[in-house]
Nucleic acid binder design. Structure first.
Lengths: 257, 257
DNA sequence: ATGACTAAGTGCGATAGCAAACAGCACGGC
DNA sequence: GCCGTGCTGTTTGCTATCGCACTTAGTCAT
């Protein structure tokens, strides 16, 4: 759709009506994000909303002893920092970059002005917020009841949905932090998947070879969340609008996060 | 405050401005809830909002094999069924009555009308929604990293905060369903607490004898969620309004849920 | 080429929680 | 008083995961 290679569309921005887009686009900044980068610490005031295009963000709950657990994943289907305009100003979790790439950034205040017009933007963001909550709720049950093997599959599928290819740049160590388990546990699980020919990995490079098989091996949690997200966001968007990508690029400034 | 013994106030209703209360009160129905009763199944359309007074509700994620995990607890500080007016119409979790008592019930449409006025009700409900999300996010990390012993303490504290006394009517079996563990695990943990003199229980009746000790034995999750909830709801409510309880009673009809 | 570093594989004892079964005990209805 | 039902205590394996230590193997900079 765009002749520019780097920034893919963000679906949330794309789903906004044209007039809303017109108001927001002049203030969108294109930012480059590096994997591992921390966008927000837990409790820190969210000053910006990040709309990933080809990057992926993770929301992490970090507990006192330093261990963590991913509670939601945000790619080009969503946004991070929505408390900057939904009230609350901060959230008790950390936001880190899981996969390098780009995101459009918007000062929370601008989005709040739009939110306070009580139009499509409010409705859309509320629905997105609920999709994310569904993901958190499912994560909780998943952490309680499912095996590392199943959870690794779920995590790979979630990532895959947010990436342009079947390849990702991620170490087992990183995944272990996301799932809140030991690195060895991920090594085990990944080894099994590789023996089955479902994935192939090598020093921080994972390729998914057999996605249907991955879906079968995953716990239900992936499908449950996907179904709910589609119900909330995809189905209502038959009336979706196109985002004028070219203009975004003319207006966007490239800034570090 | 009220001369009526049964229905305590719901803090969310109480925090609404007088004019909002005036509009809503004629439509509030007082309902009686029995422990174990299922208010909503996962995915079922939420037709009403429930504002507990002296009852407690649990939001449960039920997975395919039938096991479950509590993702949030709702007492007189909050409400269940908020998707009935925040968009989405349903949520992928079950709502069950954890502790018998009463709740004010309101047809979702009425609340949506209020929500769509974009006044205090919207701001308040958004902040409440975030407090609940914080609880879910913390539950996820808790399920991953903390022991049954710690989680039992957390759960008892959450319940205690929503009850008028230090006594609760709950079997270990029920708690095991909430925490998503086997009953025997709860028996173990509860036995330890009883030996320490922190609680006393007997056939479905639990009394908390030493709350400070319970807080020390609990994982951090209780305190983290409490702090965030207070930040979002208690602190901003210096400007809180009183709810005219008498009128509520005059107007409320007693209906089964 | 060499050495430093990071990613991944492996082995092993410890343990938390699971699965299934059974025994005892209390309350409430008869 | 008797008995059924529901709640709790306990036992015996069993498994997944942990925690730690150590090895192997790519990758990169010099």
């Amino acid at each position: 759709m765009s002749i520019y290679p780097v920034p893919l569309q963000n679906q949330l921005l794309a789903a906004l009506p044209r007039d809303v887009q017109a108001r927001l686009l002049p203030f969108l900044e294109l930012t480059t994000l590096q994997a591992g980068q921390v966008l927000y610490e837990a409790g820190e005031t969210r000053r910006h909303v990040y709309f990933p295009t080809d990057s992926i963000l993770s929301l992490l709950n970090v507990i006192e002893d330093g261990s963590s657990a991913e509670i939601s994943m945000v790619g080009n289907e969503g946004a991070a920092g929505i408390t900057s305009f939904m009230g609350g100003e901060s959230s008790p979790w950390q936001v880190v970059v899981q996969s390098s790439g780009h995101a459009y950034r918007l000062v929370g205040r601008r989005m709040k002005e739009e939110f306070d017009r009580h139009g499509e933007a409010l409705v859309l963001m509320l629905r997105y917020a609920q999709a994310r909550v569904a993901q958190m709720a499912q994560s909780a049950a998943c952490y309680r009841h499912h095996s590392i093997d199943q959870q690794l599959c779920r995590w790979l599928l979630l990532s895959l949905d947010r990436l342009p290819s079947n390849h990702m740049n991620t170490t087992q160590e990183f995944i272990s932090n996301m799932l809140g388990v030991r690195r060895e546990g991920v090594t085990d699980a990944a080894g099994k998947l590789q023996k089955l020919g479902v994935i192939e990995y090598r020093r921080g490079n994972i390729s998914v070879l057999d996605r249907p098989r991955l879906e079968k091996l995953s716990c239900e949690c992936y499908a449950v969340v996907k179904k709910e997200t589609d119900r909330l966001l995809v189905a209502p968007a038959t009336r979706r609008f196109e985002m004028p990508v070219r203009h975004a690029h003319f207006n966007a400034q490239l800034v570090p996060a």
